[in-house]
Every structure is written in C-alpha cells, then in structure tokens.
Design a protein around this nucleic acid. Structure first.
Lengths: 234, 234
DNA sequence: GGATTATTTGGACGATAGTACAAATATGGT
DNA sequence: ACCATATTTGTACTATCGTCCAAATAATCC
C-alpha cells in the first residue's frame, strides 16, 4: 500500500522532536496534539509514544536537548564578559551574554535558539507543571550568576532592583519572540521578523539603560514633585 | 431532587464570565474546558452555550467587557500626563498612565485589571486567532497614542527605537503578571504577588530609563570599543 | 542467512472535548 | 392566575484527545 517502502526517515526520533518543537513554540503545548506532531514529522502517532512515552516526556526531551548547550554558551559568554575592564562595557557585555544564546542555540541550525526561547515563553505563560520544575532547577542558577555579575558592575544599586530589571529583560525577550510581527506593524513594514540582530541590539541598549537607572528608594537623584510612588489603588 | 430550589444565582451570566476569566488567565484558553468553567461558576455546561454561543464567544465577551474601560482609563491618564510641564516628569507620567490601568481595571473589584492583563498575556503567547483581531483593532490605536506622546517628550530619539522600547515595556508587564512568584523567588521571599504597587514602580522606573537611552545609530554618546553592534550569527 | 532486536504501523480503547436540543423550570407582565 | 418569555437542566451527539497493543516491517549481529 505504501509507494516507496525503502525511503525511511534516517532518524525518525529527531524528526518528531523537530516537529514538536516547531508546533509547540507556535501554537503552545495544549493546542497541539500528538497526531499533529506525528503528521508534521511524517510519522505514525504510535511512534511518538514509542520514543517518548508520553506527551510530557516529549516536551521534557526538548528541554533536555537545549538547556545544556544554551546554559553552557551563556556561561562562556558571561566568563568572557566578566573580563572586560571598563565597567560600562562590561555591563553591556554581560547583558549581551544573556540575550545572545536565546537567539542562537549552539545545537542545531538556523532559528533553533529562537524557536526554543519562543517555546519557553509560551510554556511560562501557559504555566505547565512539567516545565516549572525544569526551569526552577536549571535556569535559576544561571539567572543568579548573571545577577551577581550585574551587581558587580553596578554595586551601588540594590540587588532587589537588579532582580526586577533582569525579570523585565526576560519578559521583553520572550514577548519579542512570541509576537514577531507586532513591532514591524507598529512602526512601519520595514523588516520581517527574521531580523534578530536589530532586535538584540535594541533589547541590549534598553536593558543596559534600565539596569543603570537610579534605584527606587533614593529620593535624591530625581525630583518627583507630583507623582507619589506609594501604594496603588487596590 | 434539588435541595434548595429557590437559591438561584442572581446573575448566572456574570458568574460564568468571572469564572472563565479566572480560569483562562490562570491556565490558558486551551487548557480550560467549558465544563470546567461551568463547574467553577456553579452552572450547567449548557448554560454557557446559551449565554455565549461558543467558547470563543465567551472569550470575546470577556475582552469586550474590559477593553472599553481600560482604554478609557488610559486615555484619561494620558491626557492628564500630557499636561505635565517638566519633560522628565511628563515622560514618567505617560509611562505610568500606560501601566496603571493594566493593574486596576475600572469595571470590577480587586485584581480585575491584573486578571485581565494576565489573560491578555497568555492569549498573546498562545496566539489565539479570535484575540488577534481584537488586539489589532482595539489596542493599536492606544499604543500609537502613547508612542506619539512619548515621542513628544523625547523628540531626539527616532520613533523606531521608541516603538521597540514600548514593546519591551509590554513584554515586561505581561511577564511580571504571568509569573507572580518568580521575582520573590529570585530575590527573597519578601512579599507575595499582591504587592502590585512595588512592581509598578520598578517597571516605571526601568522603562523611563530605557526610553531615555541613546538611540542605536548615534555612535557618539557611547564609545563601544570591542562590542560590534552588527548582525547576529544566523 | 537466520535469529534477535529495534522500530513502525494501524487500529482500538476509554476519556473528554465543544456544541446542540428538547424538556423542565423560573421569571415577569397583565 | 395565566401566559409568554427567559433561563436552566440533563442528555446526547460527534470529534478528537493521549495512550496502548499486537502484528508487520526494518535493522543488526552471530
């Protein structure tokens, strides 16, 4: 019944992983079915169950595939950034070391890092339980290391503020990758979403400025006449 | 068969809307079933179909409920912010006018605005088609108005950069509401997620600084010895 | 080349999804 | 009190979900 029986996929497992990664990062985990993935990979739904017992197991394997190389790349870039003499330049290098691996994964081909980061963004929004554990035990170490490095470059700013601003950086990064068309729609139809280089530079520039801002409690460096920084309405 | 037949919900439609809003904003649209919503609202699944023909219709009604008041509030605050004399203070007021209504909706009770913004964050990540149309035709006007106002306060910065930085603001705002526990976990277990006031102030401070940063093309105000702002690897 | 293992296949299972619909019940006007 | 309307209920329908399983097929090793 099959036409060319000899033309098998050399590694179906990889094809399934790639298809799942692409679909999950585009439509989210819950919106994609195992059958969707199998069809996109040219496989049988049963094959997915064979290689990765469950749908969660498939997601888990995707994370395992990327977390290692990405964090390794981040550590390398962070170590190099720490050696930069000028404090201002060092801060920028640190931020770049955090952002860059999110766009270019060391493992696979073009757009691999972007795709995985987009997946992480969607998963953090959907609040998947399987992912929460991986995030907590894998990325928090990296985040701490980066915040420590940032704090060394900006010793006069309380750590709490730096945590907030790093948090904002991650949110901005996620949102940029999740909505690739929004920026070009708001500005003008200049570049398509593949112009990751420009996005990175804009993000780095904005983040460095945000990190350097005066902390909240210091009343001195700003005047603040009318605006009261107190509690919100609630 | 029913115990107290007289104790009916005074307005079941509202109860369904509230339950759907809470569940959608917590678990995402796809992960929540109509039956889940009905059960949480103490209603029958058929009642959901009666009031809002489909699940999409229910989501649509939630957006209709909030978009009006929130954008109206934003316009009011923006108009007030435009009247601030000092350029620096005006910029901060503009950012605050954008952020504040995302935390406190004018329509319903405590956490209403936060809940709806969290919903918007999840929906933008999941890429729902119904929502995409509402966003495009409802929020882009508001976004344009804010960017125009920001551009008036920062005339020397190209509009493209301001668009990017406003984009980052929205991403940071979304991510902060989607992961309410992450910040307290990274810093220290100080305050629970309900401390929206502090989050707003941190976000405003960081955003104002980011908006004021020197644009990318100007090579003058920074030195940039080793870092090349060129294209990414790809 | 035959035996053993690894992989793929197609179909099936129970569970649950969104939605539809008729009957039952509550509500409001007169 | 009665009727018309609005709402709620219970159930049923079809589709699809994740997962499982035995048979078929490909790959590997002696």
């Amino acid at each position: 019944m099959k036409a060319a029986a000899g033309t098998r996929k050399p590694n179906m497992r990889e094809a399934i992983l790639a298809a799942a990664e692409e679909l999950f990062s585009t439509y989210g985990f819950n919106a994609v079915s195992v059958r969707d993935i199998a069809q996109a990979a040219g496989a049988n739904p049963g094959s997915v169950t064979y290689h990765f017992r469950t749908k969660d197991g498939l997601l888990l394997e995707i994370y395992r595939r990327h977390c290692g190389p990405m964090n390794r790349r981040r550590s390398e870039l962070l170590a190099a950034a720490r050696r930069v003499r000028d404090l201002q330049d060092r801060l920028e290098a640190i931020v770049r070391a955090y952002v860059l691996p999110a766009f270019t994964s060391g493992s696979d081909l073009a757009g691999g890092g972007t795709r995985f980061t987009r997946l992480r963004a969607i998963m953090s929004a959907e609040g998947n339980e399987v992912v929460r554990k991986i995030i907590a035990q894998t990325f928090d170490d990296t985040s701490h290391a980066f915040i420590d490095a940032i704090h060394e470059s900006l010793p006069h700013i309380p750590r709490t503020d730096l945590v907030w601003r790093s948090h904002f950086l991650l949110g901005a990064l996620y949102y940029t990758l999740v909505t690739p068309e929004r920026v070009s729609r708001l500005s003008r139809g200049s570049a398509d979403g593949t112009d990751a280089g420009h996005a990175i530079e804009e993000l780095v520039r904005a983040t460095v400025a945000a990190l350097q801002a005066a902390p909240l409690d210091e009343g001195a460096p700003r005047k603040i006449p009318g605006a009261n920084p107190g509690r919100v309405v609630t």
